[in-house]
Structure formats: C-alpha cells, structure tokens
C-alpha cells in the first residue's frame, strides 16, 4: 500500500496537533526550558544574579562529587527514602485493608481522620511540630516524662541522633493518608467475585491476602512505591521548616543542600547558582535512574 508523505500525514492529523499544541507550549515553557537552562547554568561559575557568568565546563560537577557534604546529603536523602517508604507502604496497606471492610461502619470517619494531615499545609505542620517536639514543655516530652519513659527531656530536633528519625516520623504521619488512599483504590479494583470464589475454595485470612489479593494488586504496589519513593526524595518544605538541615547538617538532604548553595549563605558570601544547578542536575539524574529502574520492574511484573 502506498504510504502517505509525512506532510500529508501531519496535515490530515492537523486537528490532533492543534489540540496538543497548548499543552506542548506549556510543557516547553515550564518543564523543558527550566531543565535545559539548569543544565546550561550547571556549566557556569555564576552567583545567579550578576551579569558575570563564566563558562567552566564540568568543574561544578567535579567539585560536587568531591564534596563530602554533597555525598552526605545525597546518602541522607536515600536514608530518608528507605526509612519512610516501606513504613508508609506497609502501614498504608494494613490500614486500607481494615478500612476497605464494608462491615466497619466508622470506616469513612477513620479515613477522614487519617487523611486530614495530607490536606494541611506542610509548612504549618513543620512549624507546629517544632513545638510538639520541643524539649521545653513540648507535648511529646511531657508525655514521655509523665509516663516515666524518660527522666530528662529529649531534644528531638536538636540532637543529631534523633533529628532525622523524628522528621521521618512526621513525614510518615503527614503523608500516610495518601498512601492509604492509593491502596484503597487498588483494593477496590478487586472484584467481589474473587473474594467469594476464594472463600468457597477455603482461602481465608492471610492465605486470601497472600495468594489471591496481593498478586492482583501487585502492579498497583509498583506504582505506589514509585510515587512514594519520588515523594520521599522531595521533602524540602518539611525539613526546611523543622530543622533547616541542622544541627550541623544532621538532617541536610539534597534539596536543602541545593537550596543552601543556590540562595542562602548564612555566612555572608555570594550564593552559587551554577554549582547548585550542577548538584541539582546530578540529583535529578539519580532520581530519574531510580524511576526508570522502577518502571522496568513494573513492566516485568506486568508481564508476569
């Protein structure tokens, strides 16, 4: 069959292209352009607000990979991810299983309660949590002291050993509701017939969940893990409001590191947007790599 020339194909599909055009322009303006510019800026020695910007090739990247604080922040970001995502996934699943039970009359109420932190502004949560975990009459310490669990107040956010676990705990609490909703959506795709058939075949309790329900919702689990993992690598507002990366870098994740070098120099010298962009690009590629790996895993799971 004679194939139409490309121009003719485009002309025939002109309405499709026209409708795609607005989205393409917006994507170009707000996604492609900033990504491209950050790649370009990462090759410059530039403070970000003077005309003077010197092309220095990959020197910023070289400096970043040789900076121990960069790697500390890099690793800390993954510690944060590996410390929060499994907890959220497992807890969210357990809660969803319970709240998916139609017999439980108060399920909508509990769903709402667990979901409420999700819709609360994260900066507000961050600030309020600094008071909750304050060693000076903070409710967390008051509880621990009144129950004799500790004899002296714990400086949750000021102690390098406790700061990251505390922020991770707040993060899990804040976003648990959305994980629960993902799982509920997944569980609700399982037809009632499957439950009925399983019961007839004698599969109940954990056997029902392990052998019947879990394989059905597994593809959803991959998507949920992917979304949660990327989410756990984007925790700037919570950490900035709770600790700003301190004390002495103990809670400095990559986003805080990038922010610190790009904008905020408490020590009173010029910021380094070029360097921050290099760190950001490096970080972006790392996140992309993880996303691709998870995507491949998802495809493989679907084939199974």
């Amino acid at each position: 069959m004679h194939k139409k020339p490309l121009s003719k194909q485009i002309y025939d599909a002109r309405w499709c292209y026209l409708f795609v055009l607005p989205c393409s322009i917006l994507t170009g303006m707000f996604v492609i352009y900033p990504i491209g510019m950050s790649w370009y800026f990462s090759l410059l020695d530039w403070s970000g607000f003077t005309k003077e910007a010197k092309f220095i090739g990959l020197q910023n990247y070289y400096e970043a990979v040789n900076d121990e604080f960069f790697w500390d922040a890099f690793i800390r970001s993954f510690i944060f991810m590996f410390g929060t995502v499994p907890v959220k996934i497992v807890l969210g699943f357990i809660i969803a299983v319970f709240l998916n039970n139609q017999v439980l009359k108060l399920a909508p109420f509990f769903r709402t309660v667990i979901f409420m932190p999700v819709v609360t502004a994260i900066a507000i949560i961050g600030i309020v949590m600094t008071f909750v975990f304050s060693p000076f009459n903070g409710p967390a310490n008051k509880f621990l002291m009144s129950t004799n669990l500790t004899s002296a107040p714990i400086d949750f956010l000021g102690n390098p050993d406790t700061v990251l676990p505390t922020v991770m705990g707040v993060y899990v609490w804040k976003w648990l509701g959305i994980t629960m909703m993902y799982w509920l959506a997944a569980l609700q795709t399982v037809p009632q017939d499957v439950y009925d058939a399983a019961k007839i075949d004698g599969a109940e309790g954990y056997r029902l969940w392990i052998h019947i329900i879990l394989p059905i919702v597994l593809p959803f689990a991959i998507v949920i893990i992917l979304v949660e993992a990327v989410g756990a690598l984007n925790v700037f507002p919570l950490i900035e409001t709770m600790t700003a990366g301190g004390p002495f870098f103990s809670s400095e994740v990559m986003e805080i590191y990038i922010f610190r070098t790009a904008f905020v120099t408490d020590s009173g010298t010029m910021p380094r947007l070029g360097y921050a962009c290099a760190a950001g690009v490096f970080w972006g590629v790392a996140v992309l790599f993880i996303t691709v790996l998870q995507g491949l895993w998802m495809r493989r799971t679907r084939r199974i």
Binding site: T50, F249, S250, M270
Partner: peptide
C-alpha cells in the same frame, strides 16, 4: 564578590563541637 565561606563555616564548626558531632 569572589569569596566563598568554606564548608563547614566557623559557625557550623562551633555548632558541631557543641552537639558533639565534631
């Protein structure tokens, strides 16, 4: 305009000494 306070700055070093991290 060219100068950059090195990491960790004196402020952070003192903080690190106080917390016991340094």
């Amino acid at each position: 305009a060219k100068s950059r306070v090195p990491d960790p700055s004196l402020a952070l070093v003192i903080q690190g000494l106080y917390t016991g991290q340094l």
